[in-house]
Design a protein around this nucleic acid. Structure first.
Lengths: 172, 172
DNA sequence: GTCTATAGGATGATAGAC
DNA sequence: GTCTATCATCCTATAGAC
């Protein structure tokens, strides 16, 4: 609380005029994090043409998700890093926003299946969690100014999810 | 420190007979975490036959990595969850063990390329980080007693990494 | 809306007895 | 090897003045 107050050039006690408790601050930060990444993905999807392929939609969503915490998003990065460690009632207060965001991804992948762009025999729930996991874990190692650009990262994520890395038998 | 001591049925001050500081305890826990997952993967790779395919090797390593923090591994899970937030000198004290473990995965994927099992034009460094990320993030959502078994999880990870989820054009 | 002042408790760590 | 006792500092939060 003292550090937060200092950043605002006030003293610790004064923060309690704006927020009832530390947990209320955390709740607001975590919810802002989900709102930002939701906005980022929704906006990206709205900007592509109506007849874009599933692959292009997926690519736009992946890029927007990654951008949300690597380029703009302190709130989103904080959400990803700290949600699991937050107190139970704080986690509960984020549930709706998290579910809404999850449903966006469920919708994206379901569309892929409907378009026959995704294999019919895979578990979309499991694949979705692995896809999002591969993106979220980039918080641990990716730096936008480093060896790879964010666009290269997004390309690789889509490519691994869609095509994999294996050499296919030529007789396929 | 008081909680750690309680778990050992001693008092907080007595812990300092065994460890110089809290950071020394953290360092030891984090290093144990890497040692355990390293052992798990090395053992799994040693147990498969010498002429096993790259895909089988990868599968064994993936399964061992996931087992290390979902079945046995409190130390490994703690490492994954807390390394990034640990003090700089603690992180430094884990560097060697982490590099050694990373090199195991680099070796696995390089073998895949040498065997022509992996596409020649992908960046193995980037793919490795995405693969490991998709596994490590399962800490956030996977429960061994839940909807999916650990074996199903391992299968899905390998399948996404190798084959992807996209329907391939039949004319390929 | 911010301040001063402080309550009430937790924290990491130490000194010296046993 | 563990204890008692404690230091010095940190923390979240509150009450009341300005």
């Amino acid at each position: 609380m003292r550090e937060i107050a200092k950043e605002c050039d006030i003293l610790a006690g004064s923060v309690y005029y704006h927020f009832k408790s530390k947990d209320e601050i955390i709740t607001e930060i975590l919810n802002l994090g989900i709102e930002r990444v939701t906005d980022s993905v929704v906006t990206a999807l709205a900007q592509i043409e109506g007849n874009a392929s599933f692959r292009n939609c997926l690519h736009a969503a992946v890029r927007a998700h990654l951008q949300a915490f690597h380029v703009y998003g302190d709130y989103t990065a904080t959400h990803l890093r700290n949600f699991k460690q937050a107190p139970p009632d704080v986690q509960l207060a984020c549930k709706k926003a998290r579910d809404d965001y999850e449903n966006i991804w469920i919708g994206i992948l379901e569309r892929g299946r409907k378009d026959r762009a995704l294999l019919p025999d895979i578990d979309l729930g499991l694949q979705r969690l692995l896809l999002i996991g591969s993106m979220n874990w980039t918080l641990e190692w990716f730096h936008p100014q480093g060896k790879y650009t964010l666009d290269e990262l997004a390309d690789s994520v889509v490519r691994m999810f869609m095509d994999g890395c294996a050499v296919r038998a030529e007789a396929d």
